[in-house]
Simulated assay, not measured.
Amino acid sequence: MIVNRRGHEAGSGFVHTALIAGTDDEVIDALVPALRRSASTYDEVLMVVGKHTRALLAGHVDDLAGVLRWDDVAAFYRRLGFAYESFRRYLAEQAEAGRRVHVIAEPDLADKSDADPPPGRAEAYLAYEAVCNDTYAPYRFPVTCLWDTRHHSAAVIEGVQATHPRLLTPAGPQPSPHYRQPDQYLTLRSHVTLPPVPRAVSHDQILSEVAQLSRLRALLNAWAGDNGFAEESADDLVVTAVEIASNALCHAATPVRVRAWRHDDTLVVQCDDTAGIPIPATAGYHRPDTTGALPGGRGLWLARQLADVVLIDSHAGRTSIRLHFPHDVMHRG
């Protein structure tokens, strides 16, 4: 279970806020006053926003140039776990340096190879939005996320309301009536059923012992290369899939089925076991304790760093872990 530090409620300085807007005017009316308030309070306001939002703010905040630091969205929003960890590192570095900062972030969840995000991508990112209410709280800096109802479904916007304790309005941050504590949110969303695996897949392997992982590694490496993955990206795919399969073999002690297929420009790998060992909803969202205690914790944490999306379907008698590797996302930066 996540230990909820309630930083946003205890006056520690950490406030996790969402600006949910449906028009350009709504963005300006709420965000410009917030930026002016922050410019008088913080040493730096990190602006990780899209080109449209930056152009929208031009002429409204030009006098704040000495405080606003504009950064490239693509530099942060690569794989979902990478984005989450990159912002955490930034906050940690600023805290260590004794600087006060405010982060304004506009999640970039679209796969450039397709008009729509890969299945489950926005929902997967919302899990990180929930977890950061705990993991970012010690750094005592506010984080404001921009979400546009013109680009996201009603279900995603509901998730935004549930993962942000504050909603930004022209009058400032207000409590979100739909907010849920991180462990509660993750537990509720953990009960999912994955879409069926395609009938035709590129690889279908049954593993019963660790020695078979070498063959799996070779098959997946060649498959990723054949699908245009550069060496480093292919290696990340292989390391992630083999780590998950290895964990299943070691901890489930039953045969593990590994299937791999291509969905548009996304390579997908799924590992299934029948041991029936439940996976906690919070697994893999925190850097594993090296002293530690929980078996398999490193595997899921590593998977969330190297894959773009990690989906888990864990029911009695069966566990499936599905890994998404979109070509565009895997080759950013």
Results as ranks from 00 to 15, higher is better:
residue 157 I to N: 03
residue 9 E to C: 01
residue 82 F to Y: 15
residue 135 T to Q: 11
residue 52 H to W: 14
residue 17 T to N: 00
residue 170 P to M: 01
residue 285 Y to L: 08
residue 277 I to S: 08
residue 315 H to M: 05
residue 306 L to C: 04
residue 203 H to A: 13
residue 151 H to T: 09
residue 148 D to Q: 09
residue 318 R to T: 08
residue 18 A to L: 08
residue 330 M to P: 00
residue 86 S to W: 04
residue 295 P to T: 03
residue 211 A to R: 14
residue 103 V to S: 08
residue 112 K to L: 14
residue 215 R to N: 04
residue 12 S to E: 06
residue 89 R to E: 12
residue 17 T to R: 02
residue 285 Y to S: 10
residue 148 D to T: 06
residue 265 D to G: 05
residue 194 L to Y: 09
residue 61 V to Y: 09
residue 97 A to C: 07
residue 321 I to R: 02
residue 326 P to C: 02
residue 17 T to M: 00
residue 267 L to V: 11
residue 265 D to L: 08
residue 4 N to C: 10
residue 23 T to Q: 00
residue 238 V to T: 06
residue 236 D to I: 03
residue 123 E to G: 09
residue 90 Y to W: 13
residue 3 V to G: 07
residue 110 A to M: 11
residue 38 S to W: 13
residue 274 T to R: 10
residue 193 T to K: 12
residue 206 I to A: 12
residue 255 P to G: 01
residue 87 F to E: 01
residue 263 H to N: 13
residue 143 V to Y: 02
residue 191 H to L: 07
residue 278 P to L: 03
residue 263 H to D: 14
residue 24 D to K: 00
residue 331 H to K: 00
residue 135 T to R: 11
residue 203 H to T: 08
residue 233 S to A: 15
residue 274 T to I: 04
residue 275 A to C: 00
residue 278 P to Q: 04
residue 253 A to S: 13
residue 11 G to Y: 01
residue 73 V to K: 09
residue 144 T to S: 13
residue 301 W to Q: 04
residue 114 D to F: 10
residue 263 H to P: 02
residue 285 Y to D: 06
residue 332 R to A: 01
residue 249 L to W: 09
residue 181 Q to W: 13
residue 138 P to S: 14
residue 153 S to D: 06
residue 140 R to Q: 13
residue 1 M to H: 10
residue 186 L to I: 09
residue 295 P to L: 04
residue 34 A to N: 00
residue 294 L to D: 08
residue 152 H to S: 02
residue 263 H to G: 07
residue 323 L to T: 03
residue 320 S to I: 03
residue 211 A to G: 08
residue 120 G to T: 14
